[in-house]
Amino acid sequence: MSSYQISLIIQACISVISITGIFALTGLAGMFSLGQAAYMAIGSYTTFILANRLGIPFWFTAIIGIGFSALIAFIAALPTVRLRKDYFSLITIGLGQAIIALLITFSKVTNGAQGFTKIPKVKNLVWIALVITIIMVIIIRNLKYSRFGRMCIALKNDELAAKSFAINVYRLKITIYILASIIASISGILIGLQSRVLLPETFGWTASSEQEIFLFFGGTNSLTGAVVSAFSLKILPELLRNVTLFGQSMQEYRTILYCILIILVLNFRTAGLFGEYELNFNFLKKGFHKLKSKKSAKKNNGREDS
């Protein structure tokens, strides 16, 4: 496998990891945020700047980076979860812009628009990324089928009715928001490790909106759809790298392509490509049980005979 292909897989993994967070935030809890990239930025910049300044391996500072992200998320969420959905989204946009502005203002520390490059190289990053991806998908899947998943969907469908069943909607929203920020910061750190440079523009609102677009394309109610969507839409532009249109590589049209796809989906299959469908491995379990019952039936027959 070429290093180009490996880097592609890592990027796809990062995309899938981010989307699990977005799935929990928007798909389960109905919070539409266009500022998640801010937490990617907070996580990665904090981690690598500290690692560089303090001389500690980034594995340790990553914990601080993720923790700091969660803290900011908590502070941001506290006052905003009680607001109307529109206001909440507006504020997430503002937050995203504010973080980018801060990153540029403090260029002394972050090296501003030129990019922060003091990031170590990690061998076998692709395996780390794959493992984290699988863990995240499992975690969010378990979340969806737990009581928290149900309560989130309830509050998304009808907040008033959810409250009448003693669901503390505010606490739940804050929790999910913090969870999403943690996941975002992890993917931010991976972005840093993969590209070896941190640029403020990577974490702008285009990045945030890209993730929401992926989610709506795959289906806000289907984790499977979200994962497939995040994976394929991320890779798609890379595959079209060599195709040109009006003299510019298709890459430039990437975002336009995403937008068009989303508009098509919203028009023709509003619930998303995968709708409500969730991949489940029940058929494997059933097959396994059948095998077991056949075996024990044979055993019993044997005993009866003797």
Partner: peptide
């Protein structure tokens, strides 16, 4: 639900 208006408008803005 209303959120689809919002998503559509954001998509148009980006587009």
């Amino acid at each position: 639900p209303n959120i689809y208006y919002f998503v559509t408008s954001i998509t148009f803005a980006i587009l």
